[in-house]
């Protein structure tokens, strides 16, 4: 127990936590855009699986990781567009259609996997890149500045999305469409256009989130390999109060506690594994209860928009 609280364990937690957080970040930041504009996309899980599969398939057949990543992004956009078509144009119930999309992604990725790759094989994915100078700092260099390009990209996405949402015309439009679509419409902003944009962006990010698993973090594809991550990503958006910084905090909290409980087990701390495994979920719920911030909650979330209703 005593050697649990050492510098190397702390660094180990940080390294694992950052890696675990990466797919959540991609997916949850993308979902933040969709939800901020008023569309609840529960299809993230299915899009992640399709992204993971398609990225892996293309990378393993062409040998180009970048081509794989691009494919995952495109597949993500296409699935996002499908979600937008159903939820924006056809105004279907968003929760139900999202779950449908998730099941669709699960089924299709499994089917394609069986028809093409057949059994689990590994590839050599994106390798860690040590950042010059920063990477040479003792401990911190290993923990923070020796990751694959996709890990860096996930974290860079946070400040970038904060800027876009808060300081650009498109960000303003996205927030307006989610808060008061009638108002946005009356100012000549196309609610449908903005929602298509955010949902397909969210899809792209979910696709990349899946590819970050199959091309950078685990380097293989297995059926249902996301194992509910997409749903956790959706929950993290609520947790983060629709603020990318909050989403970052939630992802890190969840991932760090998950990494921490693995260390508890490795160090043989005498608690049942079931209790240790509950920790990230329990802590996340507790934090959610205390830090609830509904101020940015999009008023029009989960509500289809039709002109003339007020």
């Amino acid at each position: 127990m005593s050697d649990l609280f050492t510098l190397s364990v702390l660094m180990g937690i940080i390294v694992s936590g950052i890696r675990l957080a990466t797919p959540y970040l991609f997916a949850a930041i993308g979902e933040t855009f969709a939800q901020t504009s008023g569309v609840l996309n529960l299809g993230v899980e299915g899009i992640m699986l399709m992204g993971a599969f398609s990225g892996f398939y293309i990378a393993s057949t062409t040998g180009s990781l970048w081509l794989g990543l691009l494919t995952a992004a495109v597949v993500g956009i296409l699935m996002g567009l499908l979600m937008a078509l159903v939820s924006v144009t056809l105004q279907a119930e968003q929760g139900i259609s999202g779950i449908g999309l998730s099941l669709f992604g699960l089924g299709l990725s499994s089917l394609l996997f069986e028809k093409t790759i057949v059994s689990v094989v590994a590839i050599s994915g994106f390798q860690p890149i040590r950042i010059p100078i920063l990477g040479n700092i003792p401990y911190i260099g290993d923990a923070l500045f020796d990751h694959s390009i996709l890990v860096y990209a996930a974290f860079l996405l946070v400040p970038l999305s904060i800027y876009v949402l808060n300081h650009t015309p498109i960000g303003l439009k996205i927030r307006a469409v989610g808060q008061n679509p009638q108002a946005a419409d009356s100012l000549g902003i196309s609610v449908a256009k903005i929602r298509y944009l955010t949902v397909s962006f969210g899809g792209m990010m979910a696709g990349i989130a899946g590819a970050s698993l199959s091309l950078a973090l685990i380097d293989l594809f297995q059926e249902n390999m996301t194992n509910g991550m997409g749903y956790i990503a959706v929950a993290l958006v609520y947790f983060g109060g629709w603020n990318p910084l909050g989403v970052l905090g939630g992802s890190l909290l969840f991932s760090f506690v998950n990494a921490f409980q693995l260390w508890l087990q490795v160090k043989g701390v005498q608690i049942p594994s079931n209790i240790a495994l509950m920790m990230p979920y329990v802590l996340t719920i507790v934090a959610l209860a205390f830090a609830a911030n509904r101020a940015r909650q999009p008023t029009a979330l989960d509500k289809p928009f039709e002109r003339g209703e007020s």
């Binding site: 675990l20 797919p23 390999m225 998950n258 990494a259 693995l262």
Partner: peptide, 9 residues
């Protein structure tokens, strides 16, 4: 089936 957490473990 949680491949990611297994990798972290």
């Amino acid at each position: 089936s949680d491949v990611s957490l297994m990798a972290a473990a």
